[in-house]
Design a protein around this nucleic acid. Structure first.
Length: 473
RNA sequence: GCCGGCAUAGCCAAGUGGUAAGGCAAUGGAUUGCAAAUCCAUCAUUCUCCAGUUCGAAUCUGGAUGCCGGCUCCA
């Protein structure tokens, strides 16, 4: 089955063809580790993980790289542009290096909670200064860059394709007149490859001077090429990365090597909050902890993200998250039923093509630019079908296998049910027996007390005609 | 000023020419000691608005309105 993805560069769906048959190399723009990533950031990272899981499932040899930006990301492009990291470190009164450690650690904790499979490399900009300097030197050799004192700039006029990704034209950028005036630059749209500033805390000695630091864009070029080669398959990021970041990456990388940098550019749309932009002033920049504090699970957010297509502007609201949480519960409940039906199922050994049909729909939806929303519908359809019609032993086994494939891709279910509720299975069973006794004795107060006690321990009871089923929530 | 995107029920959201997926919520019923969970049923003659193309449009074209993004740090 062909995979088709939307390429931001061509603005159309393209059949995916890896550079090397059976393998895929991809790079994702990761966080600038100056403050904990918010749920909007994680939408992009969850998308990267979806791609990763898809290629894993299809048996590709995957090499996945996500950078951590820990230097060079300036708050603005002016001469006195400060490094975001240093600014935040000063605010927090900590050493910038320490801040990097703290935020990175938090980031990895978040990824784990979100069931994101670890990338193969998480390179940090500060560990790749020599590689970046090499790129800058090559650009100088090829006359795509020029040096003014201790600063080196990329000459956007030297790269014909500059603007191809974003649709910006150099003339328009100038007309915008919002670019900082910088007398050193030949053109206002030229961007920094290397800057010198003795005031910087994070600085390196180089052939350009004693106190320099790299421009933001160059880290991704240097690190991507180091780990993935000069040309690789897929590069992803948020829509805001398209310009200037990715535009500049292309110019730098191709300017340095003369080879195509990336075959497929994929960008996720922003997560909106209450229909608008997420912003600090509105107080709606949420972290995963904010969700947990409201009683949600981190994976509920993962489900919410998967319910929408990655190129659509998902609107985050607490209602939507609640709905995602309920929906995820429903799926987990169905999986429990399937598991039960597999061990104690009735009916014949013959399966049916219902599951195959659901699987086919699911796979088609995913193959067509990762339409998780439509794919999910096939899973719910299957659930509804079986809830309505019932299912045989063989069908349950088929369906469970399909469910596990779905979760291999979506990563929505906990790996193992936690037994940390304080009650062992035996204790739970004993309490249920006691409650059943109380109910048959019509001692409702006692029965309800036991029910509350179990609920407190996160045990969900299901009173049915043929007895009581229970599970941990 | 320049570039780009979106507008589908109470909420979230698929669907890009053939007559509106799915989830959540809601409502009625079954079940229950009461609940919860579960099950059954119902839930957009219609896709922001106006005009056009077409046998046929949520889907294409033009216009209006609203929202969002980029051009400056941002996923």
């Amino acid at each position: 089955m062909d995979l088709r993805f939307y390429n931001s560069m061509s603005r159309s769906l393209e059949t995916f063809e890896p550079i090397e048959k059976g393998s895929v190399r991809m790079y994702h723009c990761g966080p600038t580790v100056y403050q904990r990533p918010h749920i909007g950031n994680y939408r992009a990272f969850l998308f990267a993980d979806l791609l990763r899981r898809l290629f894993d499932q299809l048996g590709f040899d995957v090499i996945q790289v996500m950078n951590l930006t820990d230097v060079g990301h300036l708050v603005d492009d002016a001469d006195d542009g400060e490094d975001k990291l240093e600014v935040q470190a000063r605010k927090d009164q900590v050493d910038p290096w320490k801040l990097v450690e703290q935020v990175s650690e938090q980031f990895f904790t978040d990824l784990k909670a979100l069931h994101v499979r670890p990338a193969h490399h998480y390179p940090r900009a500060t560990d790749h200064i020599p590689e970046m300097i090499q790129v800058v030197q090559k650009l100088l050799e090829h006359e795509h860059a020029y040096q003014v004192g201790g600063n080196v700039y990329f000459d956007v006029h030297s790269f014909e394709k500059y603007g191809a990704l974003s649709g910006n034209r150099i003339e328009d950028l100038e007309a915008g007149a919002r670019l900082e005036v910088n007398d050193e630059k030949r053109h206002p749209a030229d961007f920094a490859l290397w800057k010198s500033d003795p005031k910087h805390i994070m600085k390196w000695e180089s052939c350009f001077g004693p106190d320099g630091f790299p421009g933001w864009h160059v880290e991704c070029s240097a690190m991507a090429m180091k780990y993935l080669g000069e040309s690789f398959d897929i590069h992803t990021g948020g829509e805001d990365n398209i310009f200037p970041h990715h535009e500049c990456e292309i110019a730098q990388s191709e300017g340095a090597t003369g080879l195509p940098f990336v075959n497929l550019w994929m960008h996720t749309r922003f997560l909106r909050v209450d229909g608008g932009k997420m912003s600090k002033s509105l107080g709606n920049v949420y972290s995963l902890d904010d969700l947990v504090e409201k009683g949600f699970e981190v994976l509920d957010f993962r489900f919410l993200v998967l319910k929408a297509h990655y190129r659509g502007s998902l609107n985050f609201t607490w209602d939507a998250l609640q709905s995602a949480a309920e929906g995820r519960k429903g799926l987990m409940d169905f999986r429990r039923r399937l598991e039960a039906a597999c061990t104690q199922g009735k009916g014949g050994e013959e399966g049916s093509d219902i599951v195959d049909k659901a699987r086919e729909e699911f796979q088609l939806a995913i193959a067509e630019d990762l339409n998780t929303s439509a794919a999910l519908a096939s899973v719910f359809d299957l659930r509804n079908h079986f809830l309505k019609r019932g299912l045989s032993f063989a069908e349950a086994k088929q369906a469970l296998a399909f469910f596990n494939e779905v979760d291999d891709l979506f990563g929505l279910f906990p790996e193992a049910v936690e037994t940390s509720s304080g009650l062992s299975d035996e204790e739970v069973e004993a309490l249920i027996v006691a409650r059943t006794q109380a109910r048959s004795d019509k001692e409702w107060a006692l029965a309800d007390e036991i029910r509350d006690q179990l609920a407190e321990a996160k045990i969900v009871l299901e009173d049915g005609a043929d007895g009581v089923r229970w599970h941990r929530s």
